[in-house]
Design a protein around this nucleic acid. Structure first.
Length: 275
DNA sequence: ATACCGACCTGTCAGC
DNA sequence: TGCTGACAGGTCGGTA
């Protein structure tokens, strides 16, 4: 489900709520899929640790953890705990009295008396701990220069849509924002990445940054079940130009929006505006 | 080396 | 009502 703007919204919400809190105890469900590290490794890294910071890297939420015994002076990072939400994952801070939602796979009891819960019906989400720092692949699309951005696509015969989704190139772009950026840049999703012209690359760079920035400002896109760490939905979906609008009129020219499948993913575009 | 495609899971919704 | 199939925001590994 969540792409860069949704993960950013969740990470910001979590940062304001749990930064400085200490993890008292950890409960992990019996389903193994959501755990990338062993349950023992996760429990050992988390229990007693202080949450020093919460940040987003691509589609990962990264919790910087400090050793339990370390005082303010000697405090040091002893592990990073990362959460990838997959398609349906969510992280919520809630009162322990609130009933556990179905598909809850992890519950962290915090010293402040609240709980941090990881819920994920489809179990595509992943939890892991990293002792030597966490290194995400690819480049942040909001930080990259135009020159580097253009260089990512050189020599790639793959459709530009697939290249945008490739997390080893750009990290954080998913199906919604790839389609929305291509719509604003007026480029067809099947256009071969390597054959984009300089003006097209310029438009795509600007469109991608704009669409991500607007979506973060709107708190992300809520489709079916997405909510942030507070349980609040986002509102960017009302600004979607093509995603989820198959058959509806293009907001620019009125033509019916098309849906095709590219590399197994639904791709939406206006056949008249996007060349 | 690169690129596509099915697999991984569960839930929901449209159509019969 | 109930069944079946298509589809869903993501990623991985095998294959071509």
């Amino acid at each position: 489900m969540p792409e860069l703007p949704e993960v950013e919204t969740i990470a910001r919400g979590l940062a304001t709520r749990v930064t400085g809190d200490v993890i008292e105890s950890v409960w992990l469900g019996s389903k193994p899929e959501p755990l990338k590290s062993s349950p023992e490794q996760i429990v050992r890294a988390l229990e007693g640790a202080r949450i020093a910071a919460v940040q987003r890297m691509g589609k990962h939420i990264v919790f910087r953890l400090e050793a339990p015994q370390a005082g303010p002076q000697s405090a040091r990072t002893h592990a990073h705990w990362t959460v990838h939400l997959g398609m349906t994952g969510s992280l919520r801070v809630c009162d322990p009295a609130v009933a556990l939602a179905p598909h809850t796979h992890a519950v962290l009891k915090l010293c402040s008396g609240r709980e941090l819960r990881f819920v994920d019906p489809r179990r595509f989400g992943r939890l892991s701990v990293h002792r030597d720092g966490f290194q995400a692949t690819g480049v942040e699309p909001l930080d990259i220069s135009f020159e580097r951005f253009a260089g990512l696509f050189r020599g790639r015969k793959t459709p530009i849509k697939s290249a945008l989704l490739n997390q080893k190139l750009l990290r954080g772009v998913g199906n919604i924002y790839a389609d929305e950026a291509l719509a604003r840049a007026r480029i067809r999703p099947r256009h071969r990445a390597a054959t984009l012209t300089y003006p097209e690359l310029r438009r795509l760079y600007a469109a991608l940054q704009k669409v991500l920035t607007l979506a973060i400002a709107a708190g992300g896109s809520s489709i079916s079940d997405y909510v942030d760490a507070d349980g609040e939905p986002g509102f960017f979906q009302i600004q979607h130009r093509v995603y989820g609008r198959e058959g509806k009129p293009c907001r620019r020219c009125g033509s019916a929006i098309k849906r095709v499948v590219i590399a197994g993913r639904s791709s939406h575009y206006c056949p008249r505006c996007q060349k």
